[in-house]
């Protein structure tokens, strides 16, 4: 008897919680599941690297000896131009006398911000579009999927370059453009997942119990696509950072921030590839390490979701 009462109070407690809280719980549960990733050695390496990047980004003001645009001087007040690495300038200086190490440290903030914002934005948009498109079908599906087709037809980098040169280059615009590029894949994947989920018995059961469309969509179906959405957040971080670096390298980045791509652009323009390796290698290697660390985490997570990818 006590058992039944316990179950009943439990049920009523569940009911009393709002739908948003329940969706939030599903998100947390999925995050907790990420613990399994620790079993993958490659994911461990990726997570360790990512922790370093986050640490550097958070404590950038303490780690970087100079500001991102600060010119360094010798004791005689002469600008230190294109100096090879010294104890004062760990990674040397640029042709304008800026400290490469400091720029690198500040750049980690931009990378993390661009990665996170563009990934979260695009996955939110893509997941919503995929959910609505897959669940409702009909003309809603038709309109949303044709929009996705159009998005797939636009070559991103060229398109983004045109938009940026028409508007003003800014970090916000770059993030927005990346979001508009990334949502399409998420939307398609989530849609096909929803198409299969909505025929499952638990959806009929919810319908029979009198649940409305929104309730079924966000409380019963959405939690089941969350693992996939998470995967696309990770992929989004990687792609977002890469695209920002690519755009900046091509000269379409925000001139007011110091990102790795902008450093590479400045180095490339100044011909540092011939003369100053210390200016080219740090931003390039940092970018590669960042992308690889996300990739290692993503790959392990992907294998977790899709056992067919496992190599052994």
């Amino acid at each position: 008897m006590t058992d039944i009462r316990a179950v009943r109070t439990d049920l009523s407690r569940i009911r009393r919680r709002g739908p948003l809280a329940r969706l939030g719980e599903a998100v947390l549960r999925n995050l907790a599941n990420l613990k399994v990733l620790l079993r993958y050695p490659s994911a461990m390496v990726g997570l360790a690297l990512m922790t370093v990047f986050i640490f550097v980004a958070v404590f950038a003001p303490l780690i970087a000896p100079y500001g991102p645009f600060e010119v360094t001087y010798t004791a005689e007040r002469a600008v230190i131009r294109l100096s090879a690495p010294t104890t004062n300038n760990l990674f040397g200086t640029t042709n304008q006398g800026m400290d490469v190490f400091s720029q690198l440290v500040w750049g980690s903030r931009v990378a993390l911000m661009v990665g996170l914002l563009s990934a979260l934005g695009s996955v939110l948009l893509g997941t919503l579009i995929g959910l609505f498109s897959g669940y409702f079908g009909g003309w809603i599906d038709e309109v949303l999927m044709r929009a996705t087709d159009v998005a797939f037809g636009i070559p991103f980098l060229p398109f983004a370059m045109v938009v940026i040169s028409i508007a003003q280059p800014s970090l916000g615009l770059v993030i927005l453009l990346v979001i508009f590029f990334l949502w399409r894949t998420t939307a398609r994947v989530i849609r096909s997942q929803v198409l299969s989920l909505k025929t499952r018995p638990f959806v009929w059961a919810a319908k029979a119990a009198g649940a409305g469309h929104m309730k079924i969509l966000f409380l019963h179906i959405a939690p089941n696509v969350l693992p996939l959405s998470f995967l696309y957040v990770a992929i989004g971080v990687q792609t977002g950072v890469m695209l920002e670096a690519a755009l900046s390298f091509l000269g379409f980045g925000d001139p007011h921030v110091q990102s790795w791509g902008i450093m590479l652009n400045a180095a490339f323009q100044a011909g540092a590839m011939r003369t100053a390796w210390w200016w080219v290698l740090p931003p390039g290697l940092a970018l590669s390490a960042f992308v690889l660390s996300v990739f290692m985490i993503t790959r392990a997570y992907e294998e977790l979701l899709n056992p067919r990818l496992r190599s052994i």
């Binding site: 990687q238 890469m242 670096a245 690519a246 390298f249 590479l264 490339f268 590839m273 390796w277 080219v280 390039g284 290697l285 970018l287 590669s288 992308v291 690889l292 990739f295 790959r299």
Partner: peptide, 17 residues
């Protein structure tokens, strides 16, 4: 997998250097 995720433009800069 490594080559696939490496930023190819940095690879380009490296081989050029």
């Amino acid at each position: 997998l490594f080559l696939h995720s490496a930023p190819s433009f940095f690879v380009g800069i490296l081989v050029l250097m």
